[in-house]
Computed example of a mutant assay.
Amino acid sequence: MNLAGLLPLLILAGIGLVWWTNLRARGQALARCRRVCQARGLELLDHTVALERYGLRRDTSGRLRLTRLYRFDFSAPEQERGHGWVSLVGARVVAVQVDRVDGSADYELPR
């Protein structure tokens, strides 16, 4: 097989790798959102997270990583619908923000 025949396979493999990596990161974000909502007595609406933004950022070791910001919605007894965000660097959750009714926010940083 020559290089021209191998190129489509390499492209498909690259697309599959990107898709799998994004799916894994989304799963990490969703799992953290579920834990945060459960710990605060909130209901995670739609049982999903929505990708808000991609970007590049250096991690703690100085390597350039893909960052993702996911938004999620929740309901609480004192409010109709609230919003929160979970931030990932690579596939690692680095911060979670849950907005309050009074306009302030609670933050959870990894240990």
Rank of each mutant, 00 (worst) to 15 (best):
R65D: 02
A91Y: 06
V36H: 02
L23E: 15
D59C: 02
Y107E: 10
W20S: 06
G14E: 13
L56P: 12
L17V: 09
G82P: 10
P110S: 11
L9G: 13
E108T: 13
G103A: 09
N2C: 08
L64T: 09
S75Y: 04
V101R: 15
A105Y: 08
L44Y: 02
G27R: 15
A13R: 02
H47W: 11
Q38D: 15
S75N: 13
L17K: 08
R32H: 05
A105F: 09
L88I: 06
V98E: 05
P110D: 11
G5P: 04
W85K: 03
R111F: 07
V101K: 15
Q38A: 15
L56K: 14
W19R: 12
F74S: 02
G90V: 06
P110M: 08
V86M: 05
R65C: 06
S87W: 09
G27W: 11
S104H: 11
G16W: 01
L9E: 12
A50D: 12
G90T: 07
F72K: 03
T60P: 04
V89Y: 03
A76C: 04
V18S: 07
D46N: 14
C37R: 03
L51C: 05
V96S: 03
I11K: 13
G55D: 13
L42M: 05
L10W: 11
E43G: 10
V93M: 05
L42G: 06
L88C: 07
D106E: 13
V86G: 01
L56S: 14
R58F: 05
D73G: 06
R100G: 06
A31H: 11
T48P: 01
R92P: 00
L17P: 00
A95C: 08
L88V: 06
A31S: 12
G16A: 08
L42W: 08
A91D: 15
R65P: 01
R65I: 00
D59K: 00
A4F: 13
E78Y: 07
Q79Y: 00
D102M: 09
T67A: 13
V18M: 02
N22K: 06
D106K: 00
E80Q: 09
A29E: 01
T21W: 14
G14W: 14
G103M: 09
E78K: 08
H47Y: 12
V89G: 04
V89I: 15
R35S: 07
A31M: 07
S61N: 10
I11C: 11
E52Y: 07
D46Q: 14
F72C: 01
R32Q: 11
L12A: 15
C33K: 00
A31R: 12
Q28A: 14
T48Y: 01
A95E: 14
A91C: 15
N22A: 09
A105W: 05
C37I: 05
L30H: 05
T60V: 14
L51Y: 06
L64V: 12
G62L: 08
L12E: 10
L10I: 08
D99E: 14
V18H: 09
R92Y: 00
V98C: 01
L64P: 06
D46V: 07
A13N: 04
C33G: 04
W19Y: 13
V18L: 08
G62Y: 07
I11V: 15
W20H: 12
R24F: 06
Q38R: 13
L42R: 04
L30V: 02
L109Y: 15
S87H: 11
M1K: 09
G41C: 04
L64I: 10
A91G: 15
A95Y: 04
